[in-house]
């Protein structure tokens, strides 16, 4: 059980909470149990991969509100909402708010594991996407602001002559920048750099400084 992904169970019903933990443990999944949405928000490490399994109906803060709070904290942790009722409006609402799935109690282990499987897959994707993003950022991390400026203009389709004019430098200097950019980012061609810039949304004219500090 080297899985680092953690399933957070948030349910005010102690038996349901404990039994879910017991079942997930039997299925080889790590679970953390929370008695309330408040306790989750107070203690959980949102950076840890996994998903949240939350009862929609709880006193004080309900499942939907918890999902809202998680998003507000900038986390994309997948949320699975459980409900004791076939309450269609609540289910629709939950999905609209970005819940990954809606489980009606009582559910079977297979149903739960199926939904959790999808949630964890989403979590893995998030992890990978984040890793790729970090790698992309690492490639441009050593570029000077001037080099970033030149790169943005090059991938934007500007010719060396126009760039030199725009920046008030010589065409030779522009060429030197281009060579250094290729070397620093490890790109083999400008086509590859164009894709990297697109992933980092450099083309849209976003201030380079903001990107560098992201």
């Amino acid at each position: 059980m080297n899985d680092t992904r953690l399933i957070r169970v948030v349910d005010d019903d102690p038996e349901l909470r404990r039994s879910l933990g017991w079942m997930l443990g039997g299925a080889g999944l790590a679970a953390e149990l929370y008695t309330s949405a408040e306790q989750f928000l107070e203690r959980d490490d949102l950076h840890r991969s996994g998903c949240v399994l939350v009862d929609v109906r709880m006193p004080h803060m309900d499942g939907l509100e918890l999902q809202r709070r998680i998003r507000r904290r900038g986390s994309q942790l997948p949320v699975v909402v459980m409900s004791g009722h076939a309450d269609v409006p609540t289910a629709v609402h939950a999905m609209e708010e970005g819940a990954l799935s809606f489980l009606e109690k009582p559910f079977t282990k297979d149903e739960l594991l199926g939904v959790l499987g999808r949630a964890l897959q989403r979590a893995d994707e998030l992890v990978q996407r984040e890793a790729a993003h970090r790698a992309d950022l690492a490639r441009i991390a050593d570029l000077t602001p001037r080099e970033l400026e030149v790169m943005r203009l090059v991938v934007g389709g500007e010719l060396t002559k126009r760039i030199a004019q725009q920046l008030g430098i010589s065409e030779r200097t522009v060429d030197k920048h281009r060579e250094r950019i290729l070397a620093k980012t490890g790109a083999e061609s400008w086509a590859g750099l164009t894709l990297l810039a697109a992933r980092l949304e450099l083309v849209s004219g976003q201030p380079v400084e903001a990107l560098a500090t992201a």
Binding site: D13, E15, L16, R18, S19, L20, W22, M23, L24, G25, G26, A27, R57, G84, H85, K105, P106, F107, T108, K109
Partner: peptide
Amino acid sequence: AHELNQPLSAIANYAEGCLD
């Protein structure tokens, strides 16, 4: 129905965990 659902769900969960 909800009040019954809770223990029944919990029973099913415990049983699944036991089977595993």
